[in-house]
């Protein structure tokens, strides 16, 4: 059974176990965010909403919004924009990307899969490209709240595995809440419907079973 808390709610006396989404005052742990308490390992408050802030190592789906030599400025569904350096393309080659030719590699509006290489104190975000970096044509992108991503993946990937199997789609979930779905038109419709359903009902228990039932009822 889970417990919903609002900011300022007292959670526990064990201040040494205080984790994300909490703060400690006079040796007591209080909630800092509106969310659900998780005290399996440390005492955390899993937020129900909020904006994505990149951390090192996250894999995100970004959209090129600006070209400003020698960087591409990338929107990563966050209050902070990220940048991708041209050297990401030329690492093993002699050639250098010329001032005017950046658009040939990645143009405005292109979607990329990238890894957050570094986030500095000023929250300047540097990206590194993943091997399969460019998201090709065909398929669709849906955006959900990044707080719902763990639920969409499920415990050790159970939810997403089931979704991929039953919808027969390629599904890629990025840490920033962007989900890439590729398959036939009908399959994509079904998959995106289910993803949005999971987002809406992320806080309810027994969701995996309900999603499974829902998908089976479509199969007929």
């Amino acid at each position: 059974m889970y417990k919903v808390v609002v900011p300022g709610d007292f959670i526990s006396e064990e201040s040494n176990r205080a984790g994300e989404g909490t703060y400690v005052e006079e040796g007591k742990v209080y909630a800092m965010k509106y969310g659900i308490v998780d005290d399996r390992e440390e005492i955390k408050v899993v937020a129900l909403s909020g904006k994505y802030v990149p951390t090192k190592g996250d894999v995100v789906i970004g959209k090129i919004v600006e070209i400003s030599f020698p960087y591409w400025i990338v929107d990563i569904a966050s209050p902070y924009e990220a940048r991708l350096h041209t050297s990401e393309f030329t690492r093993n080659e002699r050639e250098k990307i010329e001032f005017g030719s950046m658009g040939k590699y990645l143009d405005l509006g292109d979607l990329i899969v990238a890894k957050v290489m570094n986030v500095d104190a000023m929250i300047r975000v540097d990206l590194a490209l993943k091997n399969e970096f460019k998201i090709g044509e065909g398929g669709r992108l849906i955006e959900i709240s990044h707080t719902k991503v763990p639920r969409l993946i499920g415990r050790s990937g159970s939810m997403i595995r089931m979704l991929k199997e039953k919808c027969n789609c390629f599904i890629f979930i990025a840490k920033n809440g962007r989900v890439w779905i590729k398959g036939s038109e009908d399959e994509m419709n079904l998959a995106s419907q289910v993803v949005l359903m999971i987002e809406n009902e992320a806080h309810t228990s027994g969701l995996t079973d309900r999603v499974s039932y829902f998908l089976d009822s479509f199969k007929r």
């Binding site: 900011p7 703060y23 965010k33 509106y34 129900l48 909020g50």
Partner: peptide, 11 residues
């Protein structure tokens, strides 16, 4: 503010 997930010490 709470609904938006803004970190706050109290309401």
């Amino acid at each position: 503010l709470a609904d938006a997930g803004i970190p706050m010490k109290d309401m």
